Computed example of a mutant assay.
Amino acid sequence: MLSMSFLIAVFWYCRRLYSFLAQLLKRWSNYLQRKLTRNLSVLTEVDLLGYSAREWKGETKQAKHMREAYEELFWSCHIKYVRQVRRDNYCVLRAVLFQIFSQGIPFPSWMKERDILKLPEKLLYSQGCNWIQQYSFGPERYTGPNAFGKLRKCMETLKTNWAEISATKDHEERGNMCNALFSDESKEHKLYEAIKFIMLYEVVEAYEQIKNREEPIHNLFSLLLARDSSSDPLSFMMNHLNSIGDSICLDQVELFLLGYLLEVKIRVYRLHRFNTEEFQVNYPDEYRREWNEISLLTEDDRYYHIPLFRT
């Protein structure tokens, strides 16, 4: 009899302990989920027309125009959902890289042939660009002699994460990896700074080819170097790249360069240009058929979100 009572007491205690641990685990899971959601720089998808109705209430001319533009996306372009992207000055780089990673798009062909980890060293030592010490990492300006080491770490972060995620074939697992990566601000910023540096490196290469009258370069480099504010790589860095992530986003010329270097066709739906020929724009406008396509939508050419298609 005593033994039976003891077993009942143990069973009751185990049930209470199990219930307590289950509740504790549930609360911890909910806490982590809330923390992840707060930190996630690319939010989960929401209904496109519902988002439009919330963002553009009222009967002003601009609100009506934007709602009509969203309806055009929904009915004619088959865009049913949108993922909001954190509105800061890395916004467009974030929206582009998130899609490249989440779709499992591999390295561009030129990146498979060259070790991108060696690009900072090559620029500094082989090409004598000592002015790279004036490179700014978004809000962190003027790192001086530390610039080379920081750039190397940025390139390592980009190469490692891109290789790991693109090699993951399971869509759900890849999505979880992307959510984790785009919840880590430090890693995120390294990705964007690596892309900025690759843009700078390619501009240096093109500039040298122009000076040495070597093989023809892509016309977007001619367009970029024709600007008074970026007539050479140093001015391109000082007047444009250094401010990206700090006070400005990429402008349209840099978007052309971004698509060209990453070998993706970037289709942008510019809602403020609805009912004009500039409503849909491709960056670059000349691209190869085998390139993957990603899409962005913007209301103002400053902040960008990710549209999701459904047939």
Rank of each mutant, 00 (worst) to 15 (best):
Y18H: 12
A22D: 15
L24S: 05
L24R: 10
L32N: 14
L32Q: 13
R34A: 07
K35I: 11
L36K: 10
L43V: 14
G50M: 02
W56G: 13
H65C: 03
H65P: 04
Y70V: 04
E71K: 15
E71Y: 07
E72N: 05
Q84H: 05
V85A: 10
N89D: 06
Y90W: 15
Y90M: 05
F98T: 05
F101W: 02
G104A: 08
P108F: 11
S109V: 05
S109G: 02
R114P: 00
I116A: 08
L119H: 00
P120I: 14
S126C: 09
W131F: 07
Y135R: 05
E140K: 09
P145R: 09
K159R: 12
K159H: 11
W162S: 05
W162C: 09
E164H: 11
E172P: 02
M177D: 07
E185Y: 13
H189L: 03
K190M: 07
E193D: 15
Y207E: 08
N212C: 02
E214G: 14
E214V: 07
E215M: 09
N219D: 11
A226F: 04
S230V: 03
D232I: 08
P233N: 12
I244S: 07
D246A: 06
I248V: 14
L250G: 05
D251L: 06
F256D: 14
V264I: 14
K265R: 15
L271P: 00
E277I: 06
Q280C: 14
Q280H: 07
Y287D: 03
W291K: 15
N292A: 13
E299W: 02
D300F: 10
D301L: 13
I306P: 01
